[in-house]
């Protein structure tokens, strides 16, 4: 059983007032409480960015690694202990800038981990530079004459790279986000939630108001198994048409399930005393 108090640490959040991180953090804690995630069954892996500070406010054994490297870190953790629910908290710069190469390969390998992408459309911790998800021609600290680059669409990239659970949520809709986080963790395989996260301090375009006016939920008749349809809807973004919900789901063996060594127990529970190596040594005689 996990309570809100169990998840609290002595450190209070230091995000800017109105930061989307507050409600993303709250949604994750709600999911943890409802599913009983705690220090015996869950670990959080975070990159470097505003999102990363979350490890200081959440009492779940965690690893805040290097900018851009949470995915390989999480892959190692999951392979070593398949019992753990492994969550990766990453930002759009952390995941698609510095960590872009890792994202593609972790997705195609279908590690059984859950990626919480804090998508605020720029680098906020370093005060507002353009990120790989920043729209074309948008003015930022690093693109005063307008962003010369075209952005990556995280949902399209995820589906194309082989992710087998791809969803998008609005960070302030706590009820919906909590449900999607639980489903993403239940999913066996590489699950990513693109969480639209307003950054009131630096992103004057993608604000709470903008999202409230333009998001809508995928219709009930939408079939997340249809990959081409998922690609199509994943491209939708703009006035009155920002779809939320689960875009794509595919049942595919996870990377971890490939290893016969892991069938009966997690790697770290397998005894590592290897006294008898004569049959191997003798091969060299």
């Amino acid at each position: 059983m996990t309570t809100m108090a169990d998840l609290a640490t002595p450190i209070m959040p230091n995000w800017c007032p109105g930061c989307g991180n507050f409600t993303i953090w709250l949604s994750f804690k709600n999911a943890a409480i409802e599913n009983g995630w705690d220090n015996t069954n869950t670990s959080i892996i975070a990159g470097i960015g505003c999102h990363g500070h979350l490890v200081n406010f959440t009492k779940l054994t965690s690893f805040e690694g290097l900018h851009g490297r949470p995915l390989p870190l999480a892959s190692g953790v999951k392979l070593a202990n398949t019992r753990l629910n492994v969550f990766v908290f990453t930002g759009d710069g952390d995941c698609f800038g510095e960590g872009g190469n890792h994202f593609i390969h972790a997705a195609r390998r279908n590690h059984d981990i859950t990626i919480m992408l804090h998508d605020n459309g720029l680098y906020a911790l370093t005060t507002g530079q353009a990120s790989p998800l920043t729209e074309h021609e948008v003015k930022t600290k690093s693109t005063p004459t307008g962003n010369p680059d075209n952005p990556i669409n995280p949902l399209v990239m995820a589906i194309a790279s082989g992710a087998t659970f791809v969803a998008r949520a609005y960070g302030s809709d706590v009820k919906q986000l909590t449900e999607i986080i639980k489903k993403a963790n239940e999913h066996k395989g590489f699950a990513i939630i693109d969480i639209l996260q307003p950054c009131e301090t630096y992103n004057k375009i993608l604000t709470h108001q903008f999202y409230q006016d333009n998001v809508y939920y995928l219709e009930d008749s939408y079939d997340p198994k249809n990959k081409t349809k998922a690609f199509e809807r994943a491209h939708e973004f703009g006035e009155k048409k920002i779809p939320l919900g689960i875009f794509y789901i595919e049942e595919k063996p996870t990377l971890e399930s490939h290893y016969v060594q892991l069938e009966s127990k997690p790697l770290i529970d397998i005894p590592l005393d290897r006294k008898n190596m004569d049959n191997v040594f003798n091969k060299y005689l």
């Binding site: 870190l73 190692g76 070593a80 770290i268």
Partner: peptide, 13 residues
Amino acid sequence: VMAIGASFAGARS
């Protein structure tokens, strides 16, 4: 980084 993650989780890496 993978090896560090596995070692953090307890595996000799």
